[in-house]
Amino acid sequence: MSTSLEIWVSAALTLMVMSFLWRDNPFYKFAEHLFVGVSAGYLMVMGFWSTLWPNAIVKLVPTAARVTDPTAALPDREPLILIPLFLGCLMLLRLWPRLSWLARWPTAFAVGTTLGYNLVRSVRSNFLEQIHATVAPGLWISSASGGVDWAATLNQLLLVVGTACALAYFTYTRSGRGFRGGVARSGLLVLMIAFGASFAYAVMSRITLLVGRLQFLLGDWLGLV
C-alpha cells in the first residue's frame, strides 16, 4: 500500500466520484465542486503562463522573459501585438452591458478569419479528398498477382453503395416511396450500423478510462497489481 499522501488524496477523490454510482451524496458533491474549481484555476493559470505571457507580455516587454527563465535570450519587441491584445480586451467588454456591443468586433474578426482560412482546406481535405478516396479505386480491385482481389472489391462495393444509400436518405426533395424510398431505407440501415460502431468505440473508450482508474486504485494505491 502506498505511503504517499498525494496517492491517498487521489484515491479518496476517485472513490468519492465513483460513489455517485451508489447514489448522489455529499462526498460526490465535494469531489465534483473541488474538480470544477481546481480545473478552472488550473486552466486560467496555464492559459496565462503558456499563452498570454509568452505571446503578449514578453513581446511587449522583452525583459519579462527573464521572469520565468533568468537565462532566456531577450526577444525583439513587437509593438504590433497591441492590435490582437486590444481586440482581446474588447472581447472582455461583453461583461459590461453598456459596452458589450464592442465585443462583436473581435468576434466578427475571429469568425471571418477562421472561416476564410478554413474554407479552402476543409473543402479540399474533407470533401474533395473524401470523394476521391471513395470512387478512385474503382469497383474492381486488382490483386498483386493481376487477378481480382475479391475481399477488397466487396469492401469497395459496400463502401460506394453504402455512401450512395446514406446520401439518398438525406435527399428530401423527392417522395420517399418506391425504389427511391427503398434506397433511402437502406441508407438508414447504413447510418444505424455506423452509429452502432461509433457507440461501441465510445463504450471501449470509457471502459479504458475505468480500467485506468482501477489500475491506479489496485496498483499505485493498494499495490495489488
Binding site: E129, H132, A133, A194, Y201, A202, M204, S205, V211
Partner: peptide, 25 residues
C-alpha cells in the same frame, strides 16, 4: 487517437493517413 475518436479519423485512412492506432486496442 482515443477509441472514441476512431470513427472520425478512419475516414482519412488510407488516403490521407498512413495508419491509425485507435485507443488501447
Amino acid at each position: 487517437c482515443t477509441a472514441i475518436g476512431m470513427p472520425e479519423y478512419l475516414a482519412y485512412f488510407p488516403g490521407q493517413l498512413v495508419g491509425l492506432l485507435g485507443g488501447l486496442k
